[in-house]
Design a protein around this nucleic acid. Structure first.
Lengths: 184, 184
DNA sequence: ATGATATCGAACACGATGTTCGATATTTTT
DNA sequence: AAAAATATCGAACATCGTGTTCGATATCAT
């Protein structure tokens, strides 16, 4: 990739990151980003079709980083073993997420939260796949899935919004405790 | 209230309801609503400041209807008693919600979902207040609260998106089962 | 060195928003 | 029934953000 493109891309990402400290994403204009990034107008549009696409790509990059090494479930685990693996995996995810806390905190609370959550759920689906087999079979699988994933997203939102004061291990324990009764 | 205002207001609500069958809320323009409602442009703006305010007021009206008669918890209940009351109350809520399924289905899935959910949570806070005292005290109350409410919202979203095929009693049972382990 | 490609940025067309205001219609009050 | 109050109408307008275009300029790859 051309160095110029790489520079521009970084400038845009940095600008967005910086601006998110002051304003909600939905209140930013493309012009704001252009000015902060110090690039030409048409340059921005040669990289991203819209402001929202920029946000999506930023989210995708974040989650690709967060989930990169934590997806593959270890084979041959029974019920309790699987349970432990899941705890470790979720803890990993939280640790990675905390590395992006600046951006994520800024995104949560506003309307762009929806974009963030959409990606988060998408990536979580894989991570939870192997836990679902063990559930309460009287309850529809797609409901259990939505419940488990949705609850985890809620948990993370709470954790981040409250300022990431708890240790990831603690948060995961809370989560597994509350979810433990019916979903395991 | 002046009859003319009442008429206009209804025309706007009906127009929105009608248009939501064809388009997502965020894709509607004020002009669309004006045309469908067959009113003058300035008339719309004399009733609502923005399109979003219209959606908010519509949500408020819906939830005021949904929650109107189901809020007051019956006094003097112990643990299990309180649990039963909550089930009945939630079932009630679901029945009321299904009366608005047309509009709600249209709102869910798009960006306007966030507005809907925000109101829903707000109204649910009161409904869940008396259940929270019984929870696992090792887990922060605000987390348990967000978890319980968030899970119920997820449940309702799942129920509606899947086409309201299950009976409200059934849905509540599923919900209480999944949540039962840690939150009761 | 040279051809390819990225950036610049002013200018433009477009669409939606929200306001204004005088004319008209309807309702409420007396 | 007349008068006063108030709501609606709708064309016109100012504003703002978007996304595109294009020729000039700068940077990169080979």
């Amino acid at each position: 990739m051309d160095r110029r493109q790489q520079k521009t891309r970084n400038a845009i990402y940095d600008a967005l990151s910086e601006l998110l400290k002051k304003k909600k994403f939905e209140d930013l204009t493309v012009q704001d980003i252009i000015d902060e990034a110090n690039i030409g107008r048409s340059t921005f549009y040669s990289h991203f079709e819209t402001k929202d696409q920029l946000l999506e790509e930023m989210c995708r990059e974040m989650f690709e980083h967060v989930f990169l090494h934590d997806l593959a479930p270890e084979a041959g685990h029974d019920f309790s073993g699987g349970h432990k693996v899941i705890a470790e995996r979720l803890t990993h995810v939280l640790y990675h997420i905390s590395e992006h806390k600046e951006n994520i905190s800024a995104i949560l609370g506003g309307e762009s939260e929806q974009t963030f959550v959409r990606f988060f759920r998408e990536y979580l689906e894989d991570a939870f796949d192997d836990v679902l087999g063990h559930g309460n079979m009287k309850i529809p699988k797609d409901f259990r899935k939505q419940f488990i994933i949705g609850s985890f997203v809620e948990t993370v939102k709470w954790w981040i919004t409250a300022g990431l004061k708890l240790a990831p291990e603690q948060v995961v324990e809370y989560y597994l405790t509350l979810i433990g009764g019916g979903a395991k």
